[in-house]
Design a protein around this nucleic acid. Structure first.
Lengths: 133, 133
DNA sequence: CCTTGACTTGGAGTCGACTCCAGATGATAC
DNA sequence: GTATCATCTGGAGTCGACTCCAAGTCAAGG
């Protein structure tokens, strides 16, 4: 699969895909005869994983470290686990903050809704008084 | 309340507090005789609101617009409501992505846990065979 | 054969959000 | 009265994460 298709399929620009590879976030993708990247199944799974992690705000640096450990193989399992646990912890913390913010937004939206309704009622009343309702 | 105390209390640097004021994210704070900022109750509530919104990832630009509308007063209620609804929508979307990522992290952590346990069992077995367990 | 279009590279530019700095001011401590 | 300290300002610098660009290569179409 060529880079444009991957870009299309995952909603990640070709520039970003190449950038991820440059900085070692995705291991080098195989090339066809003309030097053009040809993403295989494994590459695609990696792209998807990175996309997922990035969308949740995991920093690129941490992901590079994690990916590096995966490449280094079996005796890095404990270290990888620790990274994921720490990132999970931070993720949950962020989600908790967002949950709080969501509550406040809901509260405010409800208040504005009330204010709008009140304003509308007042307009109707005014029209009544003027005999236009 | 002086800026250092506010910074301390909310975990926002003085630089950031001044920056927020500069860009209009927080309306100008009153000064004492010597031109030093003196945050009052209302200022503090504004700081807290901004902190909360920022922690959930709402962009500064949007918050500036919102704060501007609040300053402009009553006939901006509908517009403010629309902003909050849109931001709420995006927030929920982000949280959903994060929820998905959380699931994958949990899955991977569990798999690593299993791998670690397996490795430990194998070490124990090897020790048994060598008569060291 | 030449153009078109997708791809390549390394490097530079952008963007959002701070963060830092130099130089000035004013209150307090010695 | 001078040193220390927190504060002030405007402007510059940094950082993470892309995003864009110029110049080059190659396969396919007319």
């Amino acid at each position: 699969m060529k880079i444009a298709e991957v870009s299309e399929q995952y909603g990640i620009s070709s520039d970003t895909l190449r950038y991820y590879e440059r900085i070692g976030l995705i291991p080098p993708v195989n090339r066809d005869g003309g030097g053009i990247r040809d993403y295989n199944e494994l590459d695609l799974r990696r792209v998807e994983f990175i996309k997922c992690m990035r969308s949740a705000g995991l920093p690129i640096e941490v992901l590079i470290e994690y990916v590096g450990l995966v490449q280094r193989g079996d005796n890095t399992i404990e270290a990888r686990k620790e990274i994921l646990i720490e990132q999970r912890r931070q993720l949950v913390a962020r989600m908790k903050e967002m949950q709080k913010t969501l509550g406040i937004l809901d509260h405010k939206i409800a208040a504005y809704e009330k204010a709008v309704l009140k304003a509308e009622r007042e307009i109707l009343q005014a029209q009544d008084l003027m005999g236009q309702g």
